[in-house]
Every structure is written in C-alpha cells, then in structure tokens.
C-alpha cells in the first residue's frame, strides 16, 4: 500500500538545481588554485555572496542590482583573501579557516546593522528573484569560458604558470603576486554568484550558515575533476544528483514497509565520491606550486 512513485525528470531537475552553487564555487576554487592559492575559504565566499545579493536585492528591489552587489562583495572578499595570502604570505589553509570563521561572525553583524536582526534578511517576493535555470546556464557556460581563458589568453598562461612554478614564472617576467591577486579576486566574484544563487534564486533570503558546507563539497568536486574546468561540470552535477537521489531514497520503502535509516542514505554522496575517486579517476595532480608563497 505504500506504493512508491517518483519521476526521473524531477530527480534530474532537482539534481541540477542542487549542483549549481557547487559549480560556481568549484569554478571559483579552480581560478584560485590554478594560480597557486589554495582556497578553503570558498564557504566564506559563498556566504558573502549570499548575504550581499539578498541584502542589495531587498534594499534596491531589483535582483540584477543584487547580483552586481554579490559580484562586488565577492571581489572585495577575494581581495582581502589575496592580500592576506599573497602579499602578507600567511599560510593559505590557516587564512582560509580564519576567513570562514570571520565571515560567519561578521555577516550577522552586518545583517543587524541593515535589518535590525541577526538571523536572516527579509524574505524576497517571487518577482524579486532570479530564475534558477538562468543561473544554472550561466554556471555551465562559465566553464568553457574559463577553459578558453586559461588556455588561449596570455593572462591565462600567466595564471597557470604562477600555479605551477614560481621561479620559472618570474624568470619570464610574470608578476606572480599580481597574477594571483587578480585570480583570487575573480575567484571571489565567481563563487559569490553561487551564493547569490542560494539567496535570491533558489532561496528567498539570506540566513546565517545557509551555505551548509557546500564550499567544501565544491572543493572535493574540483579535486575529483583534476582542477580542469570542463570535467568539473560533470563532478558537480554528479554530487548534485547524488544529493537529489538521497532525497528520493529517504522515502523508498523496504519490503517490510519501513524505510532506510537517514544516516545510511546521507552517506550516499560520499560513497559516490569514494567510488568515483578510487575506481575511475585515480590519482589527480594538483597545481605544483599550490599553497607555496612567492
């Protein structure tokens, strides 16, 4: 009597929606890490993007201005992260952790200043939000664009070279510091779009901690894709689909009428990661000069 029905189309669409913020964050991470700046601050970048998009959209009434706000704030947080890692030469991992913690504490404060509460921004009406699918296509279109940028544009060469070998890059007259600074600012902007997706497209407000670990999942997707912009589309969609599949599995009835324990089902995306990583991908090569300072 507990008949079970769901549609594959719904599952697919849900998976694509869930993969969008991952793809933005993974592409941001790619720009930063290919330039040699290890970036575990993606989580913080996402939150900054989510907050600024929701806040600016609410105050201006226009989601496009909100999206621009997210880009500006993303560039700003990217600039701060680059200053700390590239110029102040702080350890990338330590600074990434510090930045994440800082953002988690600072955003509720800004929220309080603008809206009088620490919990969330005011909710946005339907017509004040962007289409989920528009941003999904932006994310997918961004991947080949970034590939082109890295492989066909001189600055792209410099960026990759800064991430592979600092000394060799300098001997060619490339300013590694400046290249990395620009790369991390771009990373902040791209990742902030993922945050904007969460707060003004898929969701209708910023609430604290709403990225819920997506920055780290994106990092895993990036590593799984071997830091390459086209495969990263596939790994992010894989994670998104695995997430959507576990939603469906939660209500899948066992022969005795009960359902699988939630804890088991929630392992599903991670088991997929392990299987794919060990079984299909094998060893992935990170950029050689990652986390090394000039």
């Amino acid at each position: 009597m507990n008949e079970f029905h769901f549609s594959f189309v719904d599952l697919l669409l849900s998976g694509l929606r869930l993969s969008t913020p991952l793809l933005f964050a993974a592409l941001g991470g790619l720009l930063s890490e290919r330039a040699g700046v290890a970036n575990i601050a993606l989580e913080g970048f996402l939150l900054v993007g989510a907050f600024s998009a929701a806040a600016v959209t609410y105050l201006s009434g226009n989601p496009w201005i909100g999206l621009s706000g997210a880009l500006a704030a993303g560039a700003m947080i990217g600039l701060i992260f680059a200053m700390l890692t590239v110029y102040a030469k702080a350890d990338h991992i330590v600074m990434g952790t510090a930045l994440n913690l800082f953002v988690v504490g600072a955003l509720p404060l800004f929220n309080k200043i603008f809206f009088g509460v620490t919990g969330s921004t005011p909710s946005l009406e339907l017509d004040q939000r962007l289409s989920v699918w528009f941003l999904f296509f932006v994310a997918v279109a961004l991947s080949p664009l970034i590939w082109f940028f890295l492989h066909k544009v001189p600055f792209g060469y410099h960026l990759r070279s800064s991430g592979e070998n600092i000394e060799a890059s300098k001997s060619l007259g490339i300013s590694v510091k400046r290249t990395r600074l620009i790369a991390v600012i771009l990373a902040g902007m791209v990742t902030a779009l993922g945050g904007a997706f969460l707060s003004i497209a898929h969701g209708s407000q910023f609430s604290r901690g709403m990225s819920a670990g997506r920055g780290f999942i994106a990092l895993a997707a990036l590593i799984l894709a071997g830091w390459r912009p086209i495969p990263v589309i596939l790994t992010c969609i894989l994670f998104g689909l695995a997430d959507a599949a576990q939603i469906v599995l939660q209500s899948y009835p066992l022969p005795d009428g009960s359902t699988l324990p939630v804890q088991w089902i929630q392992m599903f995306p991670y088991i997929v990661t392990l299987v794919v990583l060990v079984g299909f991908v094998g060893k992935t090569e990170p950029p050689q000069a990652i986390a090394k300072n000039d």
């Binding site: 869930l18 609430s207 604290r208 819920a212 959507a244 209500s251």
Partner: peptide, 13 residues
Amino acid sequence: NNPTKAKELAVSQ
C-alpha cells in the same frame, strides 16, 4: 540552516 535543501525535499514530496 539549509533552506535550499529543505526546498528540494518539499518539491520532491
């Protein structure tokens, strides 16, 4: 604190 995930659960239901 994961509203978009909750939204997907609701859409699925």
